[in-house]
Amino acid sequence: MFVTSGAPALAKTIVPVDITYVDHVDEDENAKACEIGLAARDPKTTEGIGFTAFAAYDRPGRTFLFGFLLGVGNLRPGRKYERAVITSAAFASRSQQFDSRKTLDQQPNADGTILVATVEPTAALQFLNAFLAGGFEISFARSNRKNARRTYSIQPAPSAQVRENFFGCLEKLMPAETTASVQTSTGKIEVTDIERPGLKPGGDIPPLH
């Protein structure tokens, strides 16, 4: 069951390093997900985050889910990653006037990660456009730190190639007998409604290296 988060505590803002984006398609006989993974690291500690934005289709139920999965951890000696348990997660973009705490629901997972998602098309479209534009914040609270919120400020957007791969996956996400639109239980998202930031003449965002 999804639960909504309460009012956020005062957050510490982090400007991370080693920001990378990777597109991925996760598929089996029952479901398919178009994903963009984001990794970033706190330059002053061993902490790092793994954020995955996704659009997923459940074939048996013919339903869609949109949102993100957030995991947090620390790099230990021997380069072993130790996952932390987080109690809340949020995504916000001031420029796009989007805050996941107002429109998406969240569900804690047994492995310490949190799933934040929606089946509502308007909220899904707003989230995807805010994420693909870059210039957003990812915040969370760790269970072992008295719920003090930490915020990672992410400025770069996914590269043009990563975005195009993601759009290509979205266009194939629907069953063959349907159009290239996303039909959810509460409405429809047209793939063409998702903005492609940086792909207009003179406005391209250079890819990350």
Rank of each mutant, 00 (worst) to 15 (best):
P77K: 14
P43E: 13
L38T: 00
D23I: 01
K32Y: 05
T20D: 15
G78P: 00
G71T: 04
R101T: 05
P77A: 13
R79Y: 12
G37H: 07
A39M: 07
A33W: 02
R101H: 08
I19Y: 04
K44R: 14
G112T: 00
P60E: 11
G78A: 05
V15P: 05
A90W: 01
A53E: 03
P8N: 09
K80G: 15
H24P: 03
S100K: 09
A84W: 00
G48I: 01
D28N: 15
Q97W: 05
Y21P: 00
R83S: 13
Y81V: 14
L70T: 04
T20E: 15
L10A: 15
R76Y: 13
L10P: 03
Q106V: 03
G67S: 09
N30H: 11
T63C: 11
D111E: 09
R76H: 15
P77T: 06
D28A: 12
Y21V: 01
S93N: 06
G78E: 02
D28M: 07
Q106M: 11
T63H: 09
R101L: 14
P43Q: 14
G48A: 11
A56N: 08
Y81W: 11
A9L: 08
D18T: 11
F51S: 05
G67Q: 04
D26S: 13
P60D: 10
A56Q: 08
D18V: 06
A89F: 00
F51K: 03
N109A: 13
S93R: 01
A53D: 04
G37P: 01
G67K: 01
S95Q: 13
T13W: 09
